[in-house]
Amino acid sequence: MEDCLTVGGVNLKSRLFIGTGKYASDDLIPAVAEASASEVITVALRRVGMGQKGVMDYIPSGMRLLPNTSGARTADEAVRLARLAKAAGCGDWVKIEVISDTRHLLPDGYETAKATEVLVKEGFTVLPYINPDLYVARACIEAGAAVVMPLAAPIGTNRGLQTKEMIGILIEELDVPVVVDAGIGRPSQACEAMEMGAAACLVNTGIASSDDAVAMARAFRLAVDAGRAAYLAGAGAVRTGTEAVASSPLTGFLR
């Protein structure tokens, strides 16, 4: 049986989601997408005429678009952006991102859960970007989120799995896939997240800010595949010598 990640009824073979921001040139995006073998790619919505060119022409056909709601500071704004994205005809997936703290760019869990609830009722497949907070994750799932996307480290920092313990708790406790988003800067970090049982990783800055984005996209693909394979294989015992307990202080009374 093929190992697929199912999100909103869609089977994905690749467990690497990529972004479209921060590239030296958008011309790189097709080659990055190909090297990553990714099937899911994120985009943002902005007003036209703000000095940014549209990105759609660079995205390979057949990739599933995951529009985010970046720029939203409240649940209402996120809902509004999601509806606009859907009207653009790119499907019903949306990554909810509600950030009102521009200094640290940390997501607002309360507003995120509220937006999730509204959008699920409207038929969206909702992927909320959250702090790895069990209560926020549960609130989003209760509201109908298809996955949760906890941050590994503050967005764009490339600092790796700073929140490892908390993400481990989400993986252990939740019934939905846990997609690690934000902060993963190195393939080794993505591999570690996958080994822990993360369902997928979303990597943008880690690829876009490298010297060779296409080569790095390939490296991330290999790392995510390796981590997944290791998770499925089940890691062997780390500790040694557990067998070599000479006496039996706890169970000796049984003899």
Binding site: T20, V43, A87, A88, G156
Partner: peptide
């Protein structure tokens, strides 16, 4: 504040004082 469906662009009139948002997809993570 209401999304206009693409197929309705021709049929949707503009009136004095309308507030419009024109957005497009750009790079993002």
């Amino acid at each position: 504040r209401a999304v206009v469906a693409r197929e309705d662009y021709d049929a949707t009139p503009l009136n004095e004082g309308d507030t419009l948002e024109l957005v497009q997809f750009v790079g993002g993570g």
